[in-house]
């Protein structure tokens, strides 16, 4: 599944890194990223399109609790017609012996 997020976040050091790190570690691959820094409002405006077999809600709730997030909108969810990069299917099982 591919879906997009529109995020407004406070513009301070590492805010963008934190958004991207959370996206990666929660199991969502980034397909596109657009960022604008609104200096007047001290806001980062991020448009993020991600891909995952995990539910969208799982990323939205994690991003939503980050410090500095002002607004987060999940724009739409669509089935993935053509992957950008061909790759073997990922094992997305949450349980594995460790």
């Amino acid at each position: 599944m591919i879906f997009s997020l529109h995020i407004q976040a406070r513009s301070h050091p590492a805010m963008l890194e934190k958004i991207l790190q959370t996206t990666r570690v929660r199991g969502f691959a980034i397909r596109s990223l657009e960022v604008k820094n609104d200096a007047a409002e001290q806001l980062l405006k991020v448009h993020l399109t991600v891909e995952s077999e995990r539910p969208q809600e799982r990323l939205v709730t994690q991003l939503n609790k980050l410090g500095g997030i002002r607004e987060l909108t999940a724009l739409h969810a669509v089935a993935d017609p053509v992957p950008l990069i061909e790759r073997p299917p990922r094992n997305v099982s949450l349980m594995y012996p460790v």
Partner: peptide, 16 residues
């Protein structure tokens, strides 16, 4: 350390 700490803190700050 700001970057290193991001995955293990609720929030990290650098005072500029």
């Amino acid at each position: 350390v700001l970057g290193m700490s991001l995955p293990v803190t609720k929030q990290s700050f650098l005072v500029e």
